[in-house]
Write a protein that binds this DNA or RNA. Sequence first.
DNA 1: TGAACACTTCGACTGCAATCGAAGCGTTGC
DNA 2: GCAACGCTTCGATTGCAGTCGAAGTGTTCA
Lengths: 229, 229
Amino acid sequence: MQIIAPELADLAALIADPGRAGILTRLMDGRPQAASELARIAGVTPQTASWHLARLVERALLKVERRGPRRLYRLATPLVAQMLEGMMTVAAIDPQPLRPAPRIDAEMRRARTCYDHLAGELGVAVAEAMRERGQLHLDREAGELTAAGMAFLGDLGIDLRSPARSRRLLCRSCLDWSERRPHLAGRAGAAIADLAFQRDWIRRHPQGRSVEITAAGLAAFRTIFGARI
Amino acid sequence: MQIIAPELADLAALIADPGRAGILTRLMDGRPQAASELARIAGVTPQTASWHLARLVERALLKVERRGPRRLYRLATPLVAQMLEGMMTVAAIDPQPLRPAPRIDAEMRRARTCYDHLAGELGVAVAEAMRERGQLHLDREAGELTAAGMAFLGDLGIDLRSPARSRRLLCRSCLDWSERRPHLAGRAGAAIADLAFQRDWIRRHPQGRSVEITAAGLAAFRTIFGARI
DNA sequence: TGAACACTTCGACTGCAATCGAAGCGTTGC
DNA sequence: GCAACGCTTCGATTGCAGTCGAAGTGTTCA
């Protein structure tokens, strides 16, 4: 057996508890959360949640920060979010057509953040629209911003030139687990999400990772991006 | 709690057993394996392995194919390999400097296949060399083959033009869990691995995912690619 | 047809991980 | 300095996942 396998099993065991999985999923938007809120999400008592959180910190999936009497938890690195996204992509696969497919929360499916970029129907629609307009090449494995795409984002006030490297490296393809089609991640994806928050096109749901598309946002995504949403 | 969380926990529980983790790791090179071989790898009796394999097939992580009296198991989709690679990247993170870092099998670390492309020191060295020669842009998030890279691979007899799409989509960055630096994946990565097998630069280890670099291979990777290995 | 082989199913046993009540610790604010 | 609050630690209980021996199924080959 490969020596890495026990480490892999250990890591998986950490995610294998529904409470901890819920906590990790909740933290995927990158914002820190207090222990009590995470206990509520996991559906356990504070002392049980505390035990779960201690294990997650110990294995360096989370980091914790004291803020007064509270302790705020967040994902230790973006790598963890990326890993979870990959797992969700597989978890969302219909195990067998017999069983009903995993039900997905309607709001999450509509629009959410995936650490720092847009996901769900909104994320996929934006990526799809940019692709159709020749601003983006995108498939399941990779993504590339074209010159037209750079110019388009530039017009919106997004400057991706620094540090100036390949335009390809700005952009990563991320397979959306709810839509099962790629959306736009990487620096370009993060910049678009930032812009959308700044211009109040989307608002974070007070609890949870889903975001609400404002009326102005709906119009903007349709007219500016040409997204069918 | 998000509705996807229980599905995520279920999936993780499937990987959380050291035996199953070993089986999955073993199958990451894409080649099918018989149940008895997988039982040996998992370090359990055939009946226990059979039970593990049934669970993995039921949840659609593996698919099985009868070949005479044997049953050959393989990963159900490349998505599963990609997910495991992502998990290993996180699993290989030093949980805390106190504990010794996960020991990694020396052969695996040297050179292995990651589903369809090269990984380990060899994979990283090849990617690094191509990057230095301006044949490739690569970072943790994305990768892009340059015109020079296309020409270089073309001279080696690798034709990536069909189906002609963006040169970007040929190429994916994959963070190497043992080296913690990116190596080359995607269609370009797979083509290079294929070529290396064809020309007998590398040979599969009869058991396990590690590959052996032949003397001719070492010379070829050094002179043709300029890899420091 | 029957022997050899690969694998699976069944049933019973075992150990560990998750849980919560109770109690303890640390910070804040009056 | 003490009360209130958020969180953690400790200890005891519980249930389920993993294990293997024994027996069963299915395939191949002579």
